[in-house]
Design a binder for these strands. Structure first.
Lengths: 145, 145
DNA sequence: ACTAAATAGGATTAAATTATCCGAAATGAA
DNA sequence: TTCATTTCGGATAATTTAATCCTATTTAGT
């Protein structure tokens, strides 16, 4: 409803990589797509974007794979992942698609939607990769099925 | 962010038709697409769906056009329009795309997202075509630019 | 009856998103 | 060095969504 398929995969993948990193393990693309139940080649493209954005680190070669530092994952927010995959977020986007929709010139749904938009932006801005991967690592949440 | 382009056009079109109906005027497709600034042929397809779903009424022929009854527009909610255009809403859809995501088996974002989802569903379930078109008619909100 | 104006509907095209394939480059280990 | 394993990157395909085009049908007015 709010994320593209690419973002869904990308966020799950990043969480999985982070969770493995918590346990000092590096993971391969094959491993990731299997454990988060996503199409491997497509997810690989998405991870490339995350690597280029500096969100996760990749190591080439035989024992290579993906990883992310413990300090880094605390600073990485959902927003960063979404931007790396889908590009900048238009925070002024109107729920009914008007080019200009604001407090001064609102669309007919603006006054009800504005609180929802605020909550969504606040959620993705405040939720860190670290807290999500810790939740998975603690068995409080899961990444597939 | 939450509606497809087709829904954005469809909702705006329905509101415009309703606003005209408040003033006892029937409106044509050309009029609608001009006044809500949307592609005419595409919007026409969408209005056909709304007509088939019984949300608005169409009249063929020379002085034909679209209209909606005053009583009806009070009962029509955003949900009805969205379902008519995009099909049933999956209220259990996981924000990270998991097939099964629930209180018992949550994704890592579930506990933060569930409140947002609740608010979105509540908004589209409670907002009527009538209140939106009245808001436009009163000059409190607008449908284009 | 004719015409102009309007919706209905099928066929098609365009664009964006999702997804796959394959060869190149890197790298650790035998 | 050679090999197996891995990420990288370009090309391409498939699917979904968005949008257009054209013809048929309806109907009020002349």
């Amino acid at each position: 409803m709010i994320f593209s398929k690419a973002c869904e995969y990308g966020i799950r993948a990043a969480i999985y990589v982070a969770q493995k990193s918590i346990n000092h393990e590096r993971c391969s693309m094959k491993d990731i797509s299997k454990e988060i139940d996503s199409p491997e080649a497509f997810t690989a493209k998405i991870l490339q974007k995350l690597v280029k954005a500096g969100i996760i680190k990749s190591v080439k070669g035989a024992t290579g794979g993906f990883e992310v530092g413990l300090k880094e994952m605390k600073k990485i927010k959902l927003t960063d992942i979404v931007i790396a995959i889908d590009g900048e977020i238009d925070e002024k986007k109107c729920v009914l698609g008007l080019k200009k929709c604001s407090e001064d010139q609102p669309c007919p749904a603006h006054n009800k939607y504005k609180f929802i938009k605020k909550d969504v932006l606040s959620m993705i801005h405040n939720t860190s990769l670290s807290e999500m991967s810790n939740s998975v690592d603690a068995g409080l949440s899961c990444l597939k099925i």
